[in-house]
Amino acid sequence: MTINTTKNGTELCLAPEGRLDTVTAPELEQAINENLEGVTELTLDFAGLDYISSAGLRVLLSAQKKMNAAGKMTVRNVNETISEIFEVTGFCDILTIE
């Protein structure tokens, strides 16, 4: 999986591509943890993401909890499959989705 990382001062934008599942979730988690220092605005761009499994959800939840304390987190460009998963799991209420 490739993750495009853009950091602009206190703004961090991560755009993972492909699947966010048991195998790839740790990669995203690592990418977030490495760049989160001093970030107040985290944006996750899912334009290139096919789907997300519970392992990916766990990463999102963990990131959201951190950003709740540090600033804000936005998820954008969510496709229908992922949107449905967010819906079913109640994540649509937890995340800020644009």
């Binding site: 519970s54 766990r58 963990s62 079913v88 109640g90 994540f91 209420d93 937890i94």
Partner: peptide, 24 residues
């Protein structure tokens, strides 16, 4: 099944996977 109505800070990480499978 996990309680999907809780806020982020109260959410536990386990159980979501099987829940997703059951739902889909």
């Amino acid at each position: 099944d996990p309680d999907v109505t809780l806020a982020a800070d109260e959410r536990k990480v386990g159980g979501l996977g099987v829940f997703l499978v059951k739902k889909t």
